Amino acid sequence: MPADRARMFRMNRYQTALFDLPRSEYWHDPDGVDAICDIAYLPDGGTDRTAGQCRGHLLDIYLPHEATVRGGHTTPVYVDIHGGGFTYGYKELNRNFNTHLAARGFAVVSLNYRPAPQTDLKGQLADVQAALRWLRTHLDEYPVNPDAVFVTGDSAGGALALLTLAIENDEDAACAFGIAQPSGLRFSGGTLVCGVYSLASAATASRDGMSGIGYDPSKRLMLEQLLGGEFFAGLDAADPTYLTAEGIVSAVDLPPLFILTSSDDFLEADSLALATALSRKGSDFELSDRKTGRHETLGHVYPVGMTWLDESQQALDAIARFSFARC
């Protein structure tokens, strides 16, 4: 990797970590939630790098203690894919969001995946698939409902969540992203938090007439400057059909979606484009686009990073209502 690119990766991670650190002082786990941490979903999963283990192949499970005590198989499941610009972040950053979601009656499976530059977009989607295959094999070991599985993701994780739904529901999408055999989990729906969905290259989007339908080429250019063009290598078959909100919605019959953003979110336009495409198709979805006042701020992925806010608690309640209605 060129030295300047390596410096960009380090600086991006450092600056983002500095932004996250003060927020972590306000995080707290609600009572009544059990945590099972650092489960390897691939054989190399672990925290010992000297032994060749990969922290990117670990997941956590959060369970309402009431569900653990009662047993049975009735608790709906959320699979959470963290954000971080595809290059930063780990499952622990979403722990507070996960535990608050679990306190509302969900089992939550929070997974790591390899960040760039360890792998590219196809590799990250392959990691998600490996975690989903592990989950499908082990669901019966937990007090959860295998017929009420949802997926959520924030920012870059929102993109990975939407692409995962495309892969699981469309054979051509799976092939385009190099997934020979999707996990086969039947997702009942999903929650996408401030996601980035403008991932198509400007050239192909313009060629295929996608550039005027809620597509912002600056997102792809910004990501290429940070991640390098190689992050999007091998995606000719997916570009642009499965790399724009309009393209995915047109090509795939998606399950019900709860889309969350705010007027203070720099990716608001991507969420609105996805909602517009779903509305045109007549799909089942709900949009939460919270408007901030002149002297208010929520910023990006506020329910994930700032769970203590009233606005975040209301968002979590709305996610729960939406999901329970579709179990």
Rank of each mutant, 00 (worst) to 15 (best):
Q225H: 08
G56C: 10
N112R: 12
F266T: 01
G89R: 04
L121C: 01
H138N: 15
I61Q: 14
A320G: 04
R5K: 10
N12K: 15
M11T: 13
R70N: 13
P117F: 01
S110E: 11
R280N: 02
H300V: 03
G189H: 03
E168L: 01
S188Y: 10
A202Q: 11
H82V: 05
G305P: 07
G299F: 00
Q124A: 00
G52K: 06
L227N: 02
R10W: 02
P240H: 02
Y78F: 15
A200G: 07
A174M: 14
S211P: 05
A203L: 09
L121Y: 04
L42K: 11
A130L: 00
M306T: 04
F177Q: 09
A238F: 09
A318I: 04
L274Q: 04
T137N: 14
E230W: 11
F19S: 10
Q15Y: 06
D60P: 05
D284Q: 12
Q118M: 05
G212A: 09
Q314H: 08
Y242E: 02
M1I: 06
D317P: 06
G52R: 06
P217K: 13
C327V: 14
Q53H: 15
D208T: 12
A251Q: 13
D154L: 04
G178T: 02
T74M: 11
K219E: 15
D48C: 10
L59F: 10
N145S: 12
Y242D: 04
G83D: 04
